Each structure stands twice: as C-alpha cells, then as structure tokens.
Simulated assay, not measured.
Amino acid sequence: MSKSKQNNAGAEITNYSDWMSQLPPQLHNVPLFRLAIPGSHDSMSYNLDINSSIVEPERVKRFSKIYCVRKIVRRWAVTQEETITKQLDAGVRFFDMRIARKPNDTNPTRLFFYHGLYTRTDVEVKLGVWAEKHPKEILILALSNFKNTDKQLHIHLINFIKTLFKARLFPRSEIPTLKRCWDSGRNVIVSYDYSINQHIELWRKMTYYYGNSMDPTKVEAELRKALEKPRQSHCFLVCGLNLTLPSDVRILRYILRLCDNFANTVQRSLPRLLQWVKEQAGKTPVNVIASDLVTRDGFVPMIVRLNFSNI
C-alpha cells in the first residue's frame, strides 16, 4: 500500500453526524453507487407498539389479542434500539422503511411503519428538518413492503413525500455524487417500491441482498455471491447483514428462548459479520451495507472507513 493510501486509510472523521462533508475531495465526484454507506435494516422497529395487532408472520396474526404473544413478537421484531434522529446523528444514511395502513383505522390516509407489529409513530416522521439542518449529508430512504394500501393511498403518500422534501429530492434521471447533490441543494433520495411510481423525483426499487438465515456463515455466503456477480454500474446495491428468522416451525427454536431476544442474537453475530465486510471490501466493491443494531460495535465508523481505502 502506498504512503498516501496509508494516510487516507487512517484518516479520522471527527463527527459522524456530518461524515459525508468530511470525505476527501477525491471522493466528491464519485457516484454514490460506489461509496460505502452505512444503512439500517427495518429502521423504525425501535418504535413497535405492544398494543397493536400483529402484522406478521401470517400464522400468528390470529393470536393478536393475546398479550404474551404480542410481547414475544415484539421481542423478536425489534431490530433497532435508537430513534431515527439518533441513527442519523450516528452516521446512518440509508433507511429501510416498511409501510402499512392499519385495518379499520378511522383515518383513511394514516400510514404506519411495521415489522411484526405496527409502530406507534405514523409515517409523517420529521426527516425533512434533519435534512435541512445537514445539507451536505445525503439521506437514502427505501420505502417498500406496503401492506393494506391501495392506489389512492400511494398517491397520498407520494404527494406527502414531495411536499415534505420539495426541492431536496434528487431525481433518478441524474447520477448522484456528493458534489452534484451539494451544488444543487438536493440531499434526499427516495426509493419507492410500487408500480404506480412514475415520478421522476422518486427512484424505483433498490436491490437489497440478504442471507435469509440466522446463520452468519450462510449470510456471508449469500452476500458474497451477490457482490461477486456482474452488476449495473448506475444503481444502488444494498447488502443486508441482517439475520432472518425462519418462516416455518423452525422459528420456535428461537422465540421460545425465554431469556433471549433478537438484539442479543444479533449482538453475538455482528462482530463476525463486520469483520467479513472489511475483508470482502478488499475483494469486491461494496455500496450500502445495512445492519440491525446500527449504533453498536462501531458499525458506522467501520463502513465509513472503507471509503478511504479506495483512494
């Protein structure tokens, strides 16, 4: 490694709430598709409401009225500990947001986030204020896995997004770089995974690879295959380090552990997965790396530092 690379690799970000603005000039004109960006999986799950009905898994929904069942679902559905603002301040820039309407809600246009249960917070979360206060930080929001929504609700939500972020939305017709975002004053990228999305201000579905397993070895193997495949040069690629509970009876192996929960399970595997990312990034390009528990184990600093090794 050259001396300049050694110096860059050892560069320090002094404040991760504004880490993008501290990247060296050599990276300012690099497409965001080629930067290493920390992201959170099921970003709003810290806010799950124990009093809500069960959204998933399907086989458990009929037990929604039983408190202890909802409690178990919540224990294994919470993938993040900190609020969206604290995740932003910690340096997370990609957010995985699943959206649903509550059946029988008296407000026909009110939407919530969900993961197992609905969240207490509805979709009108104040991200616009943060984006305005940090104009050099690029937010990437992936809205997907819509439930109980129809065309009119999508029109309502799209209009809300366009009103919330206004001229800050970066259109999919251009290739985003830090400098291009900064010069245009557009620092929000919204991916909207629905066929009705014909709006140039909104990006279409972003590819999200994950291991679909609770076994870190299998997660690594699946992500390695994804990263080693030929890819389009002008699109975001998200690799999820997240563990995934089985959808069949095997799930009982986990949820019946009375003294365990999902956060503890993730904590045991996260250091190994982060080490794998560091090694894999030396072999193949990485882009967005999403994880559970994004404020633990130095996740954000490690992902951000990958950018310096490619200068």
Results as ranks from 00 to 15, higher is better:
residue 232 Q to K: 15
residue 229 K to H: 09
residue 199 H to C: 10
residue 226 A to D: 02
residue 190 V to D: 03
residue 238 V to F: 00
residue 193 D to W: 03
residue 186 R to D: 09
residue 226 A to G: 03
residue 224 R to D: 11
residue 239 C to S: 13
residue 215 D to K: 08
residue 233 S to Y: 11
residue 194 Y to T: 02
residue 232 Q to D: 15
residue 205 K to P: 03
residue 186 R to T: 05
residue 203 W to A: 00
residue 193 D to R: 06
residue 217 T to D: 09
residue 243 L to P: 05
residue 200 I to Y: 15
residue 224 R to I: 05
residue 202 L to G: 04
residue 188 V to S: 06
residue 204 R to F: 13
residue 245 L to A: 00
residue 236 F to N: 01
residue 196 I to W: 09
residue 241 L to R: 00
residue 227 L to I: 03
residue 218 K to C: 06
residue 233 S to M: 13
residue 214 M to D: 03
residue 217 T to R: 02
residue 210 Y to M: 10
residue 245 L to C: 02
residue 241 L to G: 02
residue 217 T to A: 10
residue 184 S to C: 13
residue 224 R to A: 08
residue 228 E to Y: 03
residue 194 Y to H: 12
residue 208 Y to T: 08
residue 233 S to I: 12
residue 210 Y to Q: 05
residue 241 L to T: 07
residue 219 V to R: 04
residue 206 M to F: 08
residue 216 P to A: 09
residue 210 Y to I: 04
residue 184 S to D: 11
residue 214 M to T: 05
residue 220 E to K: 12
residue 186 R to K: 14
residue 222 E to S: 14
residue 204 R to I: 12
residue 184 S to G: 13
residue 227 L to C: 07
residue 191 S to A: 12
residue 185 G to S: 12
residue 232 Q to T: 12
residue 184 S to T: 15
residue 218 K to W: 00
residue 236 F to W: 02
residue 219 V to W: 10
residue 204 R to V: 10
residue 218 K to Q: 09
residue 194 Y to E: 07
residue 188 V to T: 07
residue 192 Y to D: 00
residue 224 R to Y: 09
residue 237 L to N: 09
residue 216 P to S: 12
residue 225 K to C: 10
residue 185 G to E: 15
residue 241 L to M: 14
residue 244 T to F: 11
residue 226 A to V: 04
residue 207 T to D: 10
residue 237 L to W: 04
residue 200 I to C: 15
residue 197 N to K: 09
residue 213 S to K: 01
residue 239 C to W: 02
residue 210 Y to W: 13
residue 220 E to G: 01
residue 240 G to S: 05
residue 242 N to S: 08
residue 205 K to R: 07
residue 241 L to D: 04
residue 184 S to F: 10
residue 197 N to M: 00
residue 225 K to N: 14
residue 244 T to L: 03
residue 235 C to M: 13
residue 187 N to Q: 15
residue 242 N to M: 06
residue 237 L to F: 04
residue 240 G to C: 06
residue 185 G to L: 15
residue 223 L to M: 08
residue 235 C to A: 13
residue 219 V to C: 09
residue 243 L to W: 07
residue 241 L to P: 10
residue 215 D to N: 02
residue 217 T to Y: 05
residue 235 C to P: 08
residue 213 S to F: 10
residue 239 C to N: 06
residue 202 L to H: 02
residue 184 S to Y: 10
residue 232 Q to H: 15
residue 185 G to T: 12
residue 210 Y to G: 06
residue 187 N to I: 08
residue 233 S to A: 15
residue 225 K to V: 14
residue 228 E to C: 07
residue 215 D to H: 05
residue 228 E to R: 04
residue 197 N to F: 05
residue 191 S to G: 09
residue 186 R to A: 07
residue 191 S to L: 06
residue 194 Y to Q: 10
residue 242 N to Y: 04
